[in-house]
Simulated assay, not measured.
Amino acid sequence: MSPDDHTSLFERLARAESLRAPVSGIASDYPGATRIPRHSHGRHQLMHAISGTLHVLTDRGSWLVPPDSALWMPATLEHEVTTFGTVRLRSVYLDPGVTDISLDRPEVLRVSPLVQALIVEIVALETIEEPSARSALLLHLLLVEIARMERQPLALPLPRHPRLRRLCRAFLETPTAHLSLDDWACEAAMSRRGLTRHFREETGLSPGRWRQHACVLHALPKLLAGASVTTVALDLGYDSAAAFTTMFRRILGEPPRRFRAA
């Protein structure tokens, strides 16, 4: 996106959040590899890509949002977004005063046909200044459905420790199955034991498990775009498609081909 595109987007966001209606929406289309710089909203956001995949990064972690899902983004939390493939983004913004939804951190939620239809209808209200009986009904039904949406295991927490956070951000840029724990400990100026302890305390995962999650999140956009399992596995440094499939199944509960088909 150019600086002018960013300005236009943020002007639309500011206008959507200034409406008297407690719910508003914005439709935006982006080419692949678009980066929306760090920003935040005064309202909660439910972002859903009808096509394409989103990668969202905050100080708390990293989330991948495939086309069958949406990301709940709490109000005021700063985040940046990168697109994979052509993305048709539809976002709903909710006044925090109208919902008691207890999600205080980003969550990837599976989108049903009903929720997608509600998002599309609310986005069509973008230019409506005042609340209406119809927008109130759409909002009420959407809030009911959000509470029922299934959470997806597509989040990757980031450690708070500055050196570990730098290592993780670098790994997210170029994940590889070949990086050893000793290499990471050396870069972090820590012992293997200290590195593992900090990782578990700050992310709930071991370094190895965290890197497997990162590899899965890196692989998903490529798999959804049609890349073969073998190509993705070798790009990540796995010795074979079978080794990658075993790891993928361990993280998401099903092999990559079944996940892609679903």
Results as ranks from 00 to 15, higher is better:
L172Q: 06
E145R: 11
R166M: 04
P159D: 06
V144T: 14
L142R: 03
L143G: 12
P159L: 05
A155Q: 13
L156W: 02
E173K: 13
R165P: 03
I146G: 03
C168S: 15
L164R: 02
L143C: 11
L156A: 08
L141E: 11
P157F: 04
V144F: 12
V144W: 10
L164G: 05
A155S: 14
R163H: 11
R166V: 05
M149R: 01
L158K: 09
L154V: 04
L167Y: 09
L154S: 07
E173P: 02
I146K: 00
L167V: 13
A170Y: 00
R160I: 10
Q152M: 15
P153G: 03
L164D: 08
A155M: 04
A170R: 13
E150C: 05
A170P: 02
R163P: 08
Q152R: 07
A147V: 08
E150M: 11
L154M: 03
H140S: 14
M149L: 15
H161I: 00
V144M: 14
P162K: 01
A147M: 07
L141S: 08
L158S: 08
R165W: 03
R163W: 08
F171W: 03
I146R: 00
R151K: 09
R151L: 00
V144N: 13
V144G: 14
L158P: 10
P159Y: 06
A170M: 11
L158F: 14
L141A: 12
A170K: 11
E150G: 10
E145Y: 06
F171H: 08
H161W: 01
H140A: 14
V144A: 12
R166W: 01
L167C: 13
H140Y: 07
P162S: 03
R166N: 07
R165A: 11
I146Y: 04
L164I: 06
A147L: 07
H161M: 01
I146L: 10
A170N: 14
L154R: 01
L164N: 08
L164Q: 06
C168I: 01
E150R: 12
R165F: 06
R151W: 00
L141T: 15
Q152H: 02
